[in-house]
Amino acid sequence: MEPFARHAGIGVPLKQSNVDTDQIIPAVYLKRITRTGFEDALFAGWRKDPDFVLNREPYSSGSVLVAGPDFGTGSSREHAVWALKDYGFKAVLSARFADIFRGNAGKQGLVAAEVDQQDIELIWKELENHPGTEVIVDLQGRTVTCGAVTAGFQLDDYTRWRLMEGLDDIGLTLRTEAEISAFEAARPPFKPATLPARTA
């Protein structure tokens, strides 16, 4: 995972609330078994509409998505994060994220920055009045800047630290292998195991 400190890229206003994961990436694209190459799947339904924001210049080459509240609701599909990343997005701004989406984003190096809806609306205005304006996402200071608008955002310290360090989760956990083994040794014997398999 690449360390993330600060990013500046074209902001894309997505003026909708409740952008659920079925819209971010429709289920048909979940059939793939690769970890990359999902850029064509992002908002596939909406992109059939020529007026959709990602079909318009200069938004089509944006890398900071500015969305309405409750972004990423619905299923746990991490493909939603892969699709955003593969398309080129580095950060999503929204007043509220679904928990699983936020977790998945943090693990994949996509910044999910919680910005007040008032500020989101100011940024939308800025992006619509001046298409192509860059949004600067500063993880160090936890601020976003777009034209004249500067706003703070919420992101918990742990996720922020990991994003900035570009740390892999599993490697981090395996540093505590001794504790995991000790925990396993103390598990009650009545806990079920899947093997050997028993069937009805």
Binding site: E78, G103, N104, K107, D169, T173, I180
Partner: peptide
Amino acid sequence: FGIGTSEVEHVLATQTLPLK
């Protein structure tokens, strides 16, 4: 609870999950 694919990999490798 449901988890994302990175977490699936994490559980497969470690049988644990870091959670708040």
